[in-house]
């Protein structure tokens, strides 16, 4: 590995707790890491931290707003090299009640979880396909597996993203480009701070990162970070709509 140029990963949402953990796990493997974030100062803070932690870290930062879809092509063309792996951690829970009243907020939640990430990864996919290899990882959510009263705006955004990733995977399956969909379940991060999360269904950002890095050795299509979530969602999806609509979940 010492002579060959290091492999590189681009992390969108590099200032989130999950993004940080992913960046750290790749840096530990000796990869070159580029953190993309809308807040340049916050990204610089994470980059300094990662750099101080290892002699070998090579960390860069780039500004990117996932709602600024026109900037995506220029962003990718401006990178010194096309990364080997691109991971999209960007997302926003928003506030369900506010989204019901305020279409501007609802649109922002939908666009942040779906439109932005999907169009960015579309631009990446074209370049990866032309090169003939690459790994694309999208962080979606179990919330996209079935719409629920308490968070369906966020859930619908994630459902759209999940469908998009599955389509991309199908399209690129023959070309050496792999697409992975991550469904973390509950993760203890600042997004869920103060929430009462059920221990057995809650993962740490470090576990999410481990599972993602493992994809480099062994690609998988849809990953539930904690395996029990697969069963939980199987049951939730199996409930007939006539019953489901009356449940409080």
């Amino acid at each position: 590995m010492s002579d060959a140029p290091a492999q590189s990963v681009l992390v969108l949402g590099g200032t989130s707790d999950i993004g940080r953990a992913v960046a750290s796990a790749y840096a530990a493997k000796g990869w070159q890491v580029t953190l993309a974030a809308r807040d340049a100062k916050a990204a610089a803070r994470e980059a300094a931290d990662l750099t101080a932690r290892r002699d070998t870290s090579r960390i860069e930062t780039r500004s990117l707003d996932i709602l600024d879809t026109d900037a995506f092509r220029g962003f990718l063309d401006g990178l010194p090299a096309l990364p080997d792996t691109v991971i999209c951690v960007v997302g926003a829970m928003g506030e369900q009640a506010r989204a019901e009243r305020d279409p501007v907020h609802a649109a922002e939640v939908l666009r942040t979880n779906f439109e932005g990430p999907a169009l960015f990864l579309e631009a990446v996919a074209g370049r990866f396909a032309a090169r003939g290899r690459g790994l694309i990882v999208g962080i979606s959510s179990v919330a996209g597996d079935r719409g629920r009263a308490t968070n369906y705006v966020y859930g619908a955004g994630k459902a759209g993203f999940t469908a998009y990733l599955s389509g991309l995977r199908n399209r690129l399956a023959k070309g050496g480009v792999h697409v992975a969909t991550i469904k973390p379940g509950f993760v203890r991060t600042r997004m869920t701070e103060g929430m009462d999360l059920p221990g057995p269904l809650t993962a740490t950002p470090a576990t999410v990162a481990e599972r993602i890095v493992a994809l480099e050795e062994r690609p998988r299509d849809v990953v539930y970070i904690l395996r029990r979530w697969r069963l939980v969602m199987l049951i939730i999806r199996a409930i007939p709509e006539a019953i489901f609509k009356k449940l409080k979940l």
Binding site: A48, T51, A52, R53
Partner: peptide, 13 residues
Amino acid sequence: RLKGFDAETGLLR
């Protein structure tokens, strides 16, 4: 967060 480390001098910020 760590802010910087100089392995020559051992200075940690």
